[in-house]
Amino acid sequence: MQKTFKPYSADLLPNNFSYPQRYIDISNGTEKKQTIWMFEDANNPRAELTWQLRNNYKKWKNIGDRQLIPLAKLNDWAAFFDGDCVTGNPKVIVIDLGNEQISYEEEDFDAWYEKACMD
């Protein structure tokens, strides 16, 4: 189980985007719920590649020109923050990496996280 991880740094993020406080708490290991998703870890050597590849998904259904911020991965699924959302609790976009026609959106991080938890 992943206990902590490092979010992408502020200098990479779109202007006025901020991570939700709950996400920061999870990254620090203070949230105790468990999820089978693996959060992206900026300390991981593949994090730079993941960051670069995020732009390849613009052709996926319902993505368009949104600025995707890698969030988590589960097998062939990937979750991204909507980097254009500046509410402090951004939408989460989930795509099937193997099928450009399959994607969905959660209204915010809290909604995505509740569904991702193993309770």
Rank of each mutant, 00 (worst) to 15 (best):
Q2C: 01
K3A: 06
F5P: 00
F5L: 07
K6A: 12
K6F: 15
K6L: 11
Y8I: 01
Y8K: 04
A10C: 11
A10F: 14
D11L: 03
D11Q: 10
D11T: 10
L12N: 05
L12K: 13
N15M: 15
N15C: 10
N16F: 11
S18V: 03
S18A: 06
S18F: 00
Y19N: 07
Q21H: 05
Q21I: 07
Y23Q: 05
I24T: 07
I26T: 08
I26V: 08
N28M: 11
N28F: 00
N28D: 02
G29D: 07
E31V: 09
E31P: 01
K32W: 08
K33F: 02
K33L: 06
Q34M: 13
T35Y: 04
I36M: 15
I36N: 15
M38V: 02
E40W: 09
E40Y: 05
E40K: 11
D41S: 03
N43G: 07
N43T: 07
N44R: 05
N44C: 08
R46C: 05
A47Q: 03
E48F: 14
T50N: 07
T50P: 00
T50V: 15
Q52E: 13
L53Q: 12
N55S: 10
N55P: 05
N56Q: 15
K58A: 10
K59M: 07
K59S: 11
W60R: 04
W60A: 04
I63P: 00
I63G: 04
D65N: 12
R66P: 00
R66I: 11
L68M: 04
L68A: 02
I69Q: 11
P70R: 08
P70Q: 04
P70V: 00
P70L: 03
L71C: 03
K73N: 14
L74V: 09
L74T: 04
L74F: 13
N75H: 13
N75E: 12
F80G: 02
F81A: 12
F81K: 13
D82P: 00
G83S: 03
D84M: 05
C85D: 15
V86S: 12
T87E: 09
G88W: 06
G88E: 03
N89P: 09
N89Q: 09
P90M: 06
K91P: 00
V92L: 03
I93T: 08
V94W: 09
L97D: 04
N99M: 05
E100Q: 15
Q101R: 14
S103M: 01
S103G: 01
E105S: 04
E105P: 02
E106Q: 11
E107T: 10
Y113T: 00
E114G: 08
E114S: 14
K115W: 05
K115P: 06
M118A: 03
M118T: 02
D119T: 03
D119L: 03
